[in-house]
Amino acid sequence: MASRRVRPGRIARRGLRHLLAWIAVAFALFPALFVLGTSFNPMNNIATTRIVPRNPTLANYLAVFEKGLGVWLLNTVKVAGIAASVSVAFCALGAYAFSRFRFRGRRAGLLALMLVQTFPQTLALVAIFLILHHIGFYAPWIGLNTHWGLIIVYLGGSIGFNTWLMKGFFDSIPRSLEESALVDGATPFQAFRWVVLPLARPILAVIFVIQFITLYSEYLIANVILKGKEMYTLSVGLYNLIAEHYSDRWGEFAAGAVIGAAMILILFYALQSQIISGLIRGAVKE
């Protein structure tokens, strides 16, 4: 390498590339770094904040937890966690059937799945709201302003896309392993449970994480269904915390934002390559 002759023009072009890359990196990172600095800043408005605060303090973190951040985080993890795990379980079952069984209505079913997942659930938001309103008279625990109601809505909305995505993965798992299990007398369900599922575990984990992140960030449906500070998820809570209070709660919001983003950032970078390939397979963010 060192012996290779390098022309000055090439060095200049290299330098330019690095310069441009660093400008882009600065553009990408500055909001996050700025907010990280703000969260430790003793002053609570935007005007006085700087990336490295003068007298760092944890006061903002304490204040935002007092305003309910802990409850919102727990609510969000509960709702997103339950909805995502049940969704993965149901979708794995459904995707396996679409991938391995041949039955009447299979093609129509696949087509229907693909059509359904192109329409965002939020288009029928009014209907969802009224359905929960009516369900509430019969089963108050899944009516409006309940976490279980929200979980069911999320669950229904995620089935189409996840089944579609997982079917593709199952198609890529060779059938020979299951077939030998079937020859040995296993039922199709046993073959699914003990042969295919263990092989698909990493993929299921990734789909779970993608779904979790998506639901973690969901605002619209949660805002319609949940009323009252104790019920809020993180997105609704943080929005209501800051929306009309940029002049006096910026520091607290920054602390909440850091905590709210930290978990997702860790998840995202831990599974970076798998998540990206999963997302690019067809999803746009959210």
């Binding site: 069984f101 039955f103 079913g109 029928a124 209907a127 969802i128 229904g156 909305g157």
Partner: peptide, 28 residues
Amino acid sequence: AYPLRYLAPGLLFMTVMVLVPVVYNIYI
């Protein structure tokens, strides 16, 4: 109905929270 046993749980929720709302929305 064997394949449907695998599809039923997901299908149920998709129907209740995606298809029914769409039809209901049109009705509303």
